[in-house]
Structures are given as C-alpha cells and as structure tokens.
Write a protein that binds this DNA or RNA. Sequence first.
DNA 1: TATGCATGTAAGTAACTACTTGCATGATTT
DNA 2: AAATCATGCAAGTAGTTACTTACATGCATA
Lengths: 191, 191
Amino acid sequence: MISTEDKILGAATVVFGRRGVTGATTREIARRARVNEVTLFRHFRNKEELLRRVIVCSGQRFEDVFDAAPLESAADLRRTVAKCARVYAQKLIENEEFVRTFMGELTRHLALCRRLFAEGGKPTRQKFIAYLSEAKRKKLIRSDIDPTMAADALTAMILGGVMRRPLTGAQYGIDAYVKTCVKLYLKGLQP
Amino acid sequence: MISTEDKILGAATVVFGRRGVTGATTREIARRARVNEVTLFRHFRNKEELLRRVIVCSGQRFEDVFDAAPLESAADLRRTVAKCARVYAQKLIENEEFVRTFMGELTRHLALCRRLFAEGGKPTRQKFIAYLSEAKRKKLIRSDIDPTMAADALTAMILGGVMRRPLTGAQYGIDAYVKTCVKLYLKGLQP
DNA sequence: TATGCATGTAAGTAACTACTTGCATGATTT
DNA sequence: AAATCATGCAAGTAGTTACTTACATGCATA
C-alpha cells in the first residue's frame, strides 16, 4: 500500500512540473493525489516544504546514469559513452516536464536545485569525469581536451537537444539524435 | 524619447524572465516601467496579450546569429563554426534569464514559443543547416552525418551548457567551454 | 482659446490562493 | 471496550491578483 505522503509527493512532482512552482496550487496537488487539501497541510508544513521534499526525492531519480565500466580499449570507451548517453537521454525524457520546469526555475530556487543536483547528477558527473581522465592518461582520447568540459559537453548536447525538441518539430527521433551526438563526440575525442 | 509601450514591453521582458510567467505581476511590471498599472492595461488588453507581444519582440533578438560565410576550405568551416558558436553563446548569456524561463515554460506556451523561434532562431538554424549541407557536398565534413542533427548538436551543446551552468559551479569560464565544444565538434565532423 | 489625447490617481470588484479551525468518522491499537 | 490515530468535510480568513470605473491633469494641436 502506497503511503499518503508518497501519493502527495508523486502528485506534487507532476503538478509542479506541469504548472511551474508558482502556478501549481495545493488544491490541484491534493486532488491529483486523491487526498483532502487539509491532509496535504497535515503532512507538509507549507507549500515550500512540499517543494523541498519533491526536489530532494527527485534527485534520486538521476542516480546511476553512469555505470562503472572497463576501459582497456577504444572499443570500451565507445561502448561506455554510447550507453551513458542513451541512459541519460532516457532519464531526461522520462522526467521531461519536471526537468524542463526546474531548469527554467533554476535561478529562482538555486539552493534547492543545487541540492537536487548534488543528490543525483553530481556523483554521476564525477564518475564520468574520472572515466575520461583515465582515458586521457591511457591516451585513448586526445590530450588537449579538459575532461571536465568534455564530460559536460556530452550531457549538455543531450540536455539541450531534449529541451529544445518541441521547437524544432519532430524532424528526427531522439534516438537518432543521440546516436549522431555520440558519433560526433567520439570522433571529436580521438587523439 | 522611448515610447510608453516600449517601456512596458522592456519591463515585462525582465519581469517575466525573472519571476516566470505566472509569477510576474502586472503591478511589478508597471512599477519597473515607471508607469501606472492602469496605463499598462490601456496599452495591452490583458496579461496574456502582453506576454504575446513580449515573445514576438524577443524573437528578433535572436536573428543574425549566423552570417553568410565563405566555404572554400576546411579553414573557412572552422572559422564559421567557431564564430557561430561564440555569437550564439553570447546572445544566450545576454538574455539568460529570459531564455531560461521560456525554455522552462516551453510546453506551457508552445504555440507562442514556436512563434518566437520561427521569428528568430529558425531562419538562423536553416542557414546553418544549409551551410553544413554544402560542406558535406564539398566533402569538407564526413558523409555519414545528417546536417540537420549536426547543426542542432552544436547549438544544443552550447544551450545546454549555459542553462546548466549555475549547477556545476564556476569551474571554468563559458569562453573556455565554447572553445572546447568547437574543438570537439570540428574534429567530430572531419571526414 | 478650445479640444482631444495620453497619463495619473483613487477606489473597488470578483476570483483565487495558501493556510487554519473545529468537528465527525472509521480503522487500528491497547 | 477504550483510546489513539489518520483522514475527510465544511467553513472561514487574510492576502494577492488581474482587471475596471470614474475623475482629474497636463500637453499638443486645431
């Protein structure tokens, strides 16, 4: 049985994502959770605390984008980058409304969003940076590229692509786009 | 002398960007424009029409990111891509609050944002795609890459980088990031 | 001088919002 | 059987918001 608190958190995640933080009303969240609005306030002191909890919980959904992977050959690198890109794109799309809204509200809730990032994205990013650093030491990628920026470039390419997708029209699928990005990226990294 | 309408539009652009669409109040917009709130409603039927006008006007700020440029050699291509990336990054940063908010609200005002994009970003994108297509014909870039996706990959890399910047902390400057992206990208495009 | 015309001021309205209070109810535990 | 607990329901409060109405003011033009 799913707890009342979790029902509210789930509904709040959807409504915050769909309406934005100021646009989301406690009434709609409660209705979507099939719970009385008063019950919502019994579990969460106020809207801001609800938002905080939603953000903290959401960070967890971005763990495990990057698996520890072997790095003995260029083929290992290719496999790892391709998989990382695919998984990241998939997680972004699964949480598209939420991600979009919180990228939009980033500067208005900077501390909270930093916390979300520290929870989920940051460890993944560090792992990926370390992986690229090792690849650089092993001369599997070119020496004149900073691994931190290189790691960010890949994820930015996917994040930016997903976020701008509704504008460009559905000229191509996201899978094809990710594949193209990976192709470009891997070639770009070559020594 | 700057017209009242333009004063209101300018203030609205800032306030919408800073507070989000639902968070922005007509009172704050009017105060920032140093105009009475009633005057605001004399010029714009309601908040929604004001938003519409703001979006339409803002599209123009993203024209001319891409200059028609020569394409005779790989060096031409390098110069053009580098310049395009720099100019785009600069425009994004100049309008960062606005861009962030409207990427966040994209799906909530899809028709309007499409119009903004059609006004400014789309022609630029088409020119860049055409440029890459020509480069492909001239065998200056690899043949197994779709120019549309390739064009989008570059801008996504920059857009994503700028938007996520507040999270990663200021580990590196945006100039260095753009340079790295261009380096990766150009190498990735090579035949 | 007289007539518009754009703006400011004061006041108000109706709807909505986050949040509260008091009480009833049904299930679970003691 | 008694007590505790989580929840629902009805009603209300205080603040905010978009938007309106009515009137006064100053400035340019006819």
